Computed example of a mutant assay.
Amino acid sequence: MIRVASYNMRKGIGTDRRRNPDRTLEVLREIDADVVALQEADRRFGTRSAVIPPHLIDEHSAWKPVDFGTRAASMGWHGNALLVPKAAEVIDCEVIHLPALEPRGAVMADLAINGQTIRVVGMHLDLSGLWRRRQAHAILTHVAASLRQHPTVMMGDLNEWTRAAGCLQDFDREFSFADTGPSFHARRPVGRLDRIMVSSGLKVVDCGVHASYAARKASDHLPIWADIAAA
C-alpha cells in the first residue's frame, strides 16, 4: 500500500493572506503520504525559488524533493514538484513541456518504493478548457511514448469544474479517478478541481480530502489523498 497526495499550496499563501511555509509543511505532515505532488510550489517571479526552504524539508520531514535539474533555487518545474521518501530510489525523472499561452508544465518520475516501482505524474492545467484538453493530450502522449511502462499515478490541479467533460474525458479513457471529493475553495469546498488518477494495474483502496484546521487556513485548496495498491 502506498499513500499519495496532491496539494495546490498556493505558493504558501493561506486564506489569511499570509505566506507561511512552516504551516504548509505542517499540513503535509498531517497527511503523511509517501508521495506528494505539489502545485504552485515555487515563487512566481525573480529566481522562482522554492517556497518551502530545502532545509525545512530536510530537517523537518521524511521527504526529499525530486531533482528535475531545472532552476537552481526551484523545487520543480513551473511550480510542479514531487516529494518522495528519503529512502526511495528515483529511477528516472523528467519534465513534460505543455502547450500553453502562459508557462505551464508537468513533472514525471519513476520511483522504487518498498520494493515496488511506480510512475508518478504531477500537473497543474490551464484555466482555459481548450488548453486543458491540449495539455491532457500532451501528457497522455508523453507517458504512452515512454520506452518503459510502469503502473502510473497522475495527480494535480486539473482546473476542471465539470465532472464528466473536458480533459476528464480524455484521462478517463485510460485512467480511473479516485473519488476524493471537493477540495476548492478551502473555506467552503464545492469544486473537484484537484484529482488523483491511476492506471490499470493499480486500484484505489481509500481516498479523501484532508480538511484539518491547518489545511483550511494554509491554502485556498485542500489537499487530497489516496491509498493505492496493486490491482
Results as ranks from 00 to 15, higher is better:
2 I>T: 05
6 S>Y: 14
6 S>Q: 11
7 Y>R: 13
8 N>A: 08
10 R>C: 10
13 I>L: 13
13 I>R: 15
16 D>C: 15
19 R>D: 12
21 P>T: 14
26 E>I: 02
29 R>C: 12
31 I>M: 10
33 A>T: 04
34 D>Q: 03
36 V>R: 00
37 A>F: 06
40 E>V: 08
41 A>K: 09
41 A>Y: 03
41 A>P: 01
44 R>P: 00
45 F>K: 15
46 G>C: 13
47 T>P: 06
49 S>K: 13
50 A>D: 13
50 A>S: 13
52 I>D: 04
53 P>L: 15
57 I>S: 01
58 D>M: 05
59 E>I: 00
61 S>V: 05
62 A>G: 01
62 A>T: 09
64 K>M: 09
65 P>F: 02
65 P>M: 02
66 V>W: 04
67 D>H: 13
71 R>D: 04
73 A>C: 01
73 A>G: 08
73 A>H: 04
81 A>V: 12
81 A>T: 09
81 A>S: 14
83 L>G: 00
83 L>E: 06
85 P>S: 05
85 P>L: 07
87 A>Y: 07
88 A>V: 08
89 E>C: 03
90 V>D: 03
96 I>V: 13
101 L>T: 11
101 L>A: 08
102 E>H: 11
106 A>Y: 00
106 A>S: 09
108 M>T: 04
109 A>K: 09
109 A>Q: 02
110 D>E: 08
112 A>T: 07
113 I>Q: 01
114 N>L: 05
115 G>R: 03
116 Q>E: 04
118 I>N: 00
124 H>P: 02
125 L>H: 10
129 G>M: 06
131 W>T: 15
131 W>P: 05
134 R>T: 10
134 R>C: 12
137 H>V: 14
145 A>F: 13
146 S>I: 11
146 S>H: 12
147 L>F: 10
148 R>H: 12
149 Q>H: 08
153 V>M: 04
154 M>V: 15
156 G>S: 08
160 E>K: 06
164 A>Q: 10
168 L>Q: 01
173 R>K: 03
174 E>Y: 09
174 E>F: 11
178 A>W: 02
179 D>F: 08
181 G>M: 07
181 G>C: 14
186 A>I: 08
186 A>K: 01
188 R>Y: 14
190 V>H: 15
193 L>I: 06
194 D>W: 02
196 I>R: 00
198 V>D: 01
198 V>T: 11
201 G>F: 01
202 L>Q: 01
203 K>E: 05
203 K>A: 08
204 V>M: 04
206 D>Q: 11
206 D>K: 09
211 A>I: 04
216 R>L: 12
216 R>K: 13
218 A>W: 14
220 D>F: 02
220 D>G: 03
222 L>E: 06
223 P>R: 05
223 P>A: 07
227 D>A: 03
231 A>G: 09
231 A>S: 09
231 A>H: 10
231 A>N: 12
